[in-house]
């Protein structure tokens, strides 16, 4: 059956809770992801990111030391970032709308609320692969488009003035 080629993906799982790491990794292994990397904190994750160049990052928000939000901002904005475009799926127990907004503003692509389900994990993966969002660069933000739908489908008033489309 037609489906995502999970075996082609390289995924980095960053979570300071080893049980959640194990769970997410077990699900990814089961569907065929072979190149899996893990880190328990932001500093280790940054080194792993530079060493392994993953295609996707599954990132916990609440970690000791560097938080997931800080790590996401570092990936998107640091001149030393190996891949500022890497899709970030944020794994979190925070579900309040303000917190979702904070994650979006940090450059997160997808939001995966705990408790996680297998279906939710896989659907976020499918989404970042099959439905990549355009990137936006403004004076104050760099990251995936924060509008949920495709830009061309937006029918409301234009708040982002004089957008330049870049090939």
């Amino acid at each position: 059956m037609d489906g995502l080629r999970f075996d082609k993906l390289r995924v980095l799982v960053v979570d300071d809770n080893q049980h959640m790491r194990k769970l997410v990794i077990a699900v990814l292994q089961a569907v065929g992801v072979r190149d899996l990397f893990e880190a328990a904190d932001g500093e280790t994750a940054w080194k792993t990111l530079r060493d392994t160049n993953p295609d996707i990052i599954v990132l916990d928000w609440q970690m000791d030391g560097m938080t997931g939000l800080e790590f996401a901002r570092l990936i998107r904005n640091s001149p030393r970032s190996p891949n500022v475009y890497v899709p970030i799926i944020m794994l979190t127990g925070h579900t309040h709308v303000d917190q979702v907004r904070q994650a979006r503003d940090a450059g997160v692509n997808e939001f995966l609320a705990k408790p996680v389900s297998v279906k939710a994990i896989l659907s976020r993966l499918v989404n970042v692969v099959e439905h990549p969002r355009p990137f936006i660069r403004t004076k104050t933000y760099f990251g995936p488009c924060r509008r949920r739908r495709a830009v061309t489908a937006y029918a409301g008033p234009e708040r982002r003035k004089e957008t330049t489309l870049v090939d």
Binding site: D2, V129, P132, I136, R137, K161, E162, T163, V166, D167
Partner: peptide, 22 residues
């Protein structure tokens, strides 16, 4: 001016399904 563009790295080309189903 804000710039909008597609990421240069395409995961869809690397690992996407033939039908592009979500």
């Amino acid at each position: 001016k804000p710039q909008i563009f597609m990421p240069p790295i395409s995961l869809k080309a690397k690992a996407g399904s033939a039908s592009g189903t979500l």
